[in-house]
């Protein structure tokens, strides 16, 4: 009987430790906590080219994280990328003429969307569209342009 009890206790501890480990992987290691605040509001922005942007890429403003990319699709008439941004509710005073650009963190890092605040008195709301956008910088294109202009300059 004694032996039974200590077996039960260690088994209980084992299961609890396993669940704590899973919980830690969820809360501390991954972005699980973000999943629950789906309470944010959505705005869309059209980009000519989004480069390597992905769903769940961060959206920042002056380096502060204000939301994430929640959807990416292709517009069937302009052939531009339509990106849906999910912005956190506590950042609800973003002017409507804010500009969105796609940047790269570091030289080879992940891509993210940076917002630069405009001057309007009105603020973005759920369903609004950001008109001022700047596409991702695609390295090959930049190099290509540079070489082209160099060649033209030489002539």
């Amino acid at each position: 009987m004694m032996q039974n009890k200590s077996t039960e206790i260690t088994v209980g501890m084992f299961v609890a430790a396993g669940i704590v480990a899973l919980f830690m992987l969820a809360m501390k290691v991954s972005n699980f906590s973000e999943f629950n605040d789906d309470s944010g509001y959505q705005v869309t922005a059209e980009f000519e080219n989004i480069g390597g942007l992905k769903v769940r890429s961060p959206v920042t403003m002056a380096g502060v994280r204000v939301g994430r990319v929640s959807d990416i699709s292709l517009s069937s008439d302009t052939y531009n990328a339509v990106v849906t941004l999910s912005l956190y509710n506590n950042f609800d005073v973003i002017p409507t003429d804010t500009a969105a650009s796609i940047y790269t963190a570091g030289l080879l890092g992940e891509q993210y969307i940076g917002l630069e605040a405009g001057a309007e008195e009105e603020f973005l709301q759920n369903g609004d569209v950001i008109d001022l956008t700047q596409p991702a910088l695609v390295l090959e294109q930049v190099i290509g342009q540079f070489l082209f202009s160099k060649a033209e300059g030489d002539e």
């Binding site: 084992f14 299961v15 430790a17 396993g18 669940i19 480990a21 899973l22 830690m24 992987l25 290691v29």
Partner: peptide, 14 residues
């Protein structure tokens, strides 16, 4: 079946 995911979670966490 129950032990394996718990052990794997412990492994990753540690």
């Amino acid at each position: 079946l129950i032990s394996m995911p718990l052990l794997a979670a412990l492994f990753s966490a540690v």
